[in-house]
Design a protein around this nucleic acid. Structure first.
Length: 207
DNA sequence: AATCCGAGCAACCGCGGCTTT
DNA sequence: CAAAGCCGCGGTTGCTCGGAT
């Protein structure tokens, strides 16, 4: 239960939850590694962050997934594969861990999906990565898209026509806030309209 | 009643990328 | 510029609980 570094592991107790919540109410999120020192909680920063992000945060919705949520997860997974944080970002109140577990325990069975690497874009390490240079997928995608749509490859980092925009995080880092095709925003957490079926079909055909 | 077994889920781990020093 | 620290992601593990035997 206790690692060599003195940090506790395993399930969280109510007392630990309270210490963590008190700390965050007082100091806010972030600086997870300082919680052990400041609040005297014998948990590593990583564990604290995970506990908050996946369970304690008031924005998290607990309870069963709705059919609408299932449907959205399935559609997004079809499109982008195991990009759980992106998928979760599109489902208010759900975390990447919740979505991942829900997929692995319910949806993959429901759909008869064998465990393995995600399809469609699964090779993309980040949202801004392009397709493999001269890959059949890239060639096929180029052939499907409008003539004025310039699809780039790996060396150019981004698929043009699939526009991405960047924002700045509070600590000054760059954060990609949207990724869209023909004005259809695929990744904004504030998207109201679910993914366009024709776009899904296009991706499915190509990748 | 006891044991086994599988499903579900919380939490851990390793790694990559970004930020800070 | 390099090193150290930190954060977030996705894969995996392992504990708990309920149903079956």
């Amino acid at each position: 239960m206790e690692g060599g570094n003195g940090y506790k592991k395993g399930l969280w107790t109510m007392e630990e939850d309270k210490i963590l919540m008190d700390y965050i109410n007082k100091h806010g999120k972030g600086k997870w590694n300082r919680i052990a020192k400041v609040a005297g909680l014998k948990r590593c920063g990583k564990s604290c962050r995970l506990r908050w992000m996946n369970y304690l945060s008031p924005s998290i919705k607990h309870g069963d997934f709705t059919e609408e949520e299932d449907d959205l997860i399935i559609r997004l997974h079809n499109l982008i594969g195991n990009r759980w944080s992106l998928i979760a970002g599109r489902i208010p109140g759900r975390t990447d861990n919740q979505v991942k577990n829900h997929w692995n325990t319910h949806l993959s069975k429901k759909l008869g999906v064998k465990k393995g690497k995600g399809k469609r874009f699964a090779s993309m390490k980040t949202q801004s990565n392009g397709l493999k240079k001269n890959s059949p997928s890239l060639v096929k995608l180029k052939s499907k898209l409008p003539l004025d749509c310039n699809v780039k490859d790996d060396s150019q980092k981004v698929l043009e026509g699939f526009n991405s925009t960047e924002g700045v995080t509070k600590n000054g880092g760059v954060e990609r806030t949207s990724f869209d095709y023909d004005g259809l925003d695929l990744f904004s957490p504030y998207l109201t309209d679910p993914l366009d079926d024709s776009f899904l079909d296009l991706c499915w055909d190509c990748l």
